[in-house]
């Protein structure tokens, strides 16, 4: 299912390969690694209940790059949070490799977040008092066991991959916005996750920097990692294998 976006005819023509998706996205030929079926989620804001997700379904195949697009308030970020286990759905099914995430224990969820899942956000969310390298190695700093030499080397490799090999010693405040986002990507890469969830990864960046970040995501996908990205940007969405649209808490 992996495709190099640059080799696809629609991408070459500069068009956005938008799939006119039904509420249930087009079924993949491969068994999905992650699957959400009829997921709902509601919130109460200022005393008013709001139904953010009204029964959304999505299946992500191994190595697939899926973009979720939609207007603000359409529920796409909420859906990504549910998919990445940051938010629990009210109802519906959510499975990862056969594991029912809606009913999984907290330890299982922590294990997934630490191992198979990686998340990058619109804002980099780096720890301001750790250097770029330390932020990259953060997933390995969960316990009292010190970061090993191999892990440190892995961190340096990831920084090199995002083009920041020489800036590992810098604090986030000493890096540009684009560099900070690249450190966040390096942090996502360092643990060899299987799925990368990206919530508007270019939202706070200028177009040139955004393009660099998208190029990185394309490379990550090319290496075999599944990517689920939420974006406003139709052009960036076009780099993915599949685009699904959301509006008013539903797939459209």
């Amino acid at each position: 299912m992996n495709h190099d976006a640059s080799t696809r005819p629609d991408a070459a023509a500069g068009q956005t390969p938008i799939v006119d998706a039904p509420s249930l996205d087009a079924p993949s030929l491969e068994a999905p690694i992650l699957e959400a079926v009829n997921v709902t989620k509601s919130f109460t804001q200022d005393g008013t209940p709001t139904q953010a997700l009204k029964g959304v379904s999505l299946a992500v195949a191994p190595g697939e790059f899926v973009s979720i697009v939609g207007r603000s308030g359409s529920g796409k970020s909420t859906f990504l949070s549910v998919l990445s286990t940051l938010l629990k759905p009210d109802s519906g099914e959510l499975t990862y490799n056969g594991l029912d995430l809606a009913r999984a224990s907290e330890a299982d969820i922590d294990g997934l977040r630490h191992g198979d899942f990686a998340v990058i956000f619109q804002f980099h969310y780096l720890l301001p008092y750790l250097t770029a390298l330390e932020n990259t190695l953060l997933p390995f700093m969960r316990g009292l066991r010190p970061v090993s030499g191999a892990q440190r080397r892995r961190g340096l490799e990831c920084l090199e991959r995002v083009g920041l090999a020489d800036k590992g010693h810098r604090l986030p405040g000493q890096l540009s916005g684009g560099e900070q986002q690249r450190v966040a990507i390096a942090r996502a890469l360092v643990k060899d996750a299987r799925i990368l969830f990206a919530d508007e990864p270019t939202g706070s960046l200028d177009s040139a920097t955004g393009a660099t970040v998208m190029e990185l995501l394309g490379q990550i996908h090319k290496d075999g990692m599944s990517v689920v990205m939420v974006t406003h940007n139709e052009q960036y969405a076009g780099l993915s294998d599949r685009v699904v649209r959301m509006a008013d808490g539903l797939m459209v």
Binding site: S84, G111, H114, V119, L138, P139
Partner: peptide, 16 residues
Amino acid sequence: KKEIGILRSLGFSRKS
């Protein structure tokens, strides 16, 4: 709060 959120999203347990 955000920092705690990041740590939790990276798999840090409540105990951590």
